[in-house]
């Protein structure tokens, strides 16, 4: 069943000079899906995620969640931030409990949920630690636990592994795959790391350079756990890389063309 439908979403800004962030983006997300979103930097993939989360509204187009339009944050859509965004004045457990607290879940119950999640993300023993005592990887585990605490149907992750070192990121990816399988929730991950997308996702949405639109939709039907040295994995990686390289080149060409046009306009001005 379709959980989320993205329908012709565009995003442009009031000041006309900046090129639009997104142009006519459409794709569907079904239940228990794991969608990776990749694209050249600045293509608006994080903007897309914020629109899906209801944090920003699209300039045109719509996002449907369970057949209802998303115009504000939804109770069952949760998010993991690149910077973790843990509240430093709250302990690990208190950070995880935050969403439940706002939903007026009784204290005993939310503590139970939080402690369960602490164990799930492997932070037992750090329940009462403040974020400043945690490493980057541990912080992101708390961020994931906080997102899961409110029992969402879909978890949106914005470059969730790019603020930690590569080894920790590798471990976290494995854990997220396990969580995805165990909880049966839907995940969407925005990333610039192609290998990461192939390793985690069931499907990968490839966005073009700014303004981003869906250039390609790739199904990743490799058996799990996925081995980056598997020939199929390598083939997909090459395929994705070729797609992005093309985009990067067009964006450079476009950029040069713009410069040329600007120079042209300048010389026109001088002549008149």
């Amino acid at each position: 069943m379709e959980l989320m439908q993205v329908e012709g979403v565009s995003k442009f800004y009031q000041d006309g000079r900046v090129p639009a962030a997104l142009r006519d983006v459409s794709f569907n997300v079904h239940e228990k899906d794991f969608v990776g979103v990749v694209g050249p930097s600045g293509c608006g993939k994080s903007t897309l995620l914020r629109i899906l989360a209801g944090l920003e509204s699209p300039s045109s187009g719509r996002v449907w969640f369970h057949g209802r339009e998303v115009s504000a944050p939804q109770a069952r859509i949760s998010m993991v931030f690149q910077s973790c965004a843990l509240f430093p004045w709250r302990t690990v457990v208190q950070n995880i409990e935050y969403g439940l607290e706002l939903r007026k879940v009784p204290k005993a119950q939310r503590r139970e949920i939080a402690l369960g999640l602490v164990r799930l993300v492997g932070l037992a023993g750090f329940e009462d630690a403040y974020p400043k005592r945690l490493s980057g990887g541990m912080k992101q585990r708390v961020g994931i636990a906080r997102a899961l605490a409110v029992d969402p149907e879909i978890v949106l992750m914005d470059e969730a592994f790019s603020s930690v070192d590569e080894y920790t990121a590798e471990v976290l990816r494995g854990e997220v795959t396990d969580i995805w399988k165990e909880t049966g929730k839907t995940f969407m991950l925005v990333t610039h790391n192609l290998g990461e997308a192939i390793q985690l996702a069931e499907r990968v949405v490839v966005l073009s350079s700014r303004p981003g639109h869906v250039k390609s939709l790739l199904d990743i039907d490799l058996p799990r756990p996925r081995d980056p040295e598997d020939p199929d994995f390598v083939r997909l990686h090459k395929e994705l890389f070729a797609l992005l390289k093309e985009e990067l080149e067009t964006s450079i060409v476009r950029h040069r063309l713009r410069r040329v046009r600007e120079l042209q306009e300048l010389s026109d001005l001088e002549r008149t």
Binding site: R50, A53, L55, P73, A75, I77, S78, M79, F81, A85, F87, Y98, G99, L102, R103, V150
Partner: peptide, 9 residues
């Protein structure tokens, strides 16, 4: 932080 508080209503 503001986004976190918005996401969780």
């Amino acid at each position: 932080y503001f986004q976190v508080s918005t996401i969780f209503h």
